[in-house]
């Protein structure tokens, strides 16, 4: 059965609920989100980067910085849409409580999607700020990375909600990270240019959402206008919209039967 999504402004009340929880632990949460990518960035960027020639005309650490922004955004959105959303749906039964009020499941899902995207934006932006301070950003054109970060957050939040809709328990999420998120980090040009890979792998990687995020963010940080902007944005939008629709259908089947 295909029902028309009934999304209303009540989705914002769901968003605010999550924001209020986050606010209580904002500083540790932000530092936690920063620590892991920074360790990779400095460790690999200076350690490994010292052994490497320039890549695409920039230092390795500058190359890696752009990839790190995208990968962290992806991770933050995924964690929120998987572990945190699953806690609220299944363990705490928070969604159930919300749906006893005049809020639909579609509102709840829209609130969760926007919240996970917002949190991912915060995470990506924090890293952007740090690398800008380090002088790894070429020009104010980098500010255009912000909407791309948000869009990347939306796409991965929507994908994550599909997995949450199917998950019997937290253990299930390991499959998603091992089979989808980790390969994406290696195939989509975060650590090295994707054209180093065999053509067949490159062809697969071209379909992965992180590839499109990296293709937009990296030139922007280098002070260039990305090639094929419309195609990359359309790809991320399509992933976000399709994944959200699938997640809604699955969650409806799970909770409203």
């Amino acid at each position: 059965m295909i029902a028309i999504p009934r999304i209303s402004l009540r989705a914002f009340a769901v968003w605010r609920r999550n924001f209020l929880v986050w606010k209580k632990l904002a500083i540790p949460s932000l530092l936690g989100n920063l620590a892991d990518p920074m360790i990779y960035l400095f460790g690999l960027g200076y350690g490994l980067g010292g052994l490497l020639p320039q890549i695409d005309g920039v230092s390795y650490i500058a190359f890696l910085a752009a990839g790190t922004v995208c990968a962290s955004t992806m991770n933050a959105a995924s964690f929120e849409a998987l572990y945190s959303a699953f806690s609220r749906m299944h363990v705490q039964r928070t969604w159930e409580a919300i749906m006893n009020a005049p809020v639909t499941l579609e509102d709840v899902m829209a609130g969760e999607l926007l919240w996970a995207a917002a949190k991912a934006t915060l995470s990506g932006t924090a890293i952007l700020v740090v690398i800008a301070v380090l002088g790894l950003v070429a020009s104010p054109l980098a500010l255009w990375a912000l909407p791309v970060i948000f869009l990347t957050g939306l796409a991965f939040a929507a994908l994550g909600l599909i997995v949450t809709a199917l998950a019997p328990s937290y253990d299930f999420f390991m499959y998603y990270f091992t089979l989808f998120i980790t390969p994406m980090v290696l195939l989509c040009g975060v650590f090295f240019p994707a054209n180093q890979l065999p053509p067949l792998v490159q062809a697969v990687a071209a379909w992965l959402p992180l590839t499109h995020a990296v293709a937009l963010v990296r030139p922007l940080l280098f002070g260039e206008i990305p090639a094929g902007i419309a195609g990359h944005i359309a790809a991320l939008l399509a992933v976000a919209a399709t994944a959200f629709w699938i997640a809604l259908t699955l969650i409806r089947r799970r909770l409203l039967k």
């Binding site: 009540r10 009340a13 769901v14 605010r16 609920r17 209020l20 929880v21 209580k24 705490q92 039964r93 928070t94 159930e96 409580a97 919300i98 006893n100 009020a101 005049p102 809020v103």
Partner: peptide, 23 residues
């Protein structure tokens, strides 16, 4: 509801405020 689903991250007052917002 049959099973408690208060928000464990909030105080008693916050539970009431957040729930009122859903209305």
């Amino acid at each position: 509801p049959q099973f408690d689903n208060l928000d464990p991250d909030f105080t008693a007052a916050e539970n009431l405020i957040v729930y009122g917002r859903y209305f």
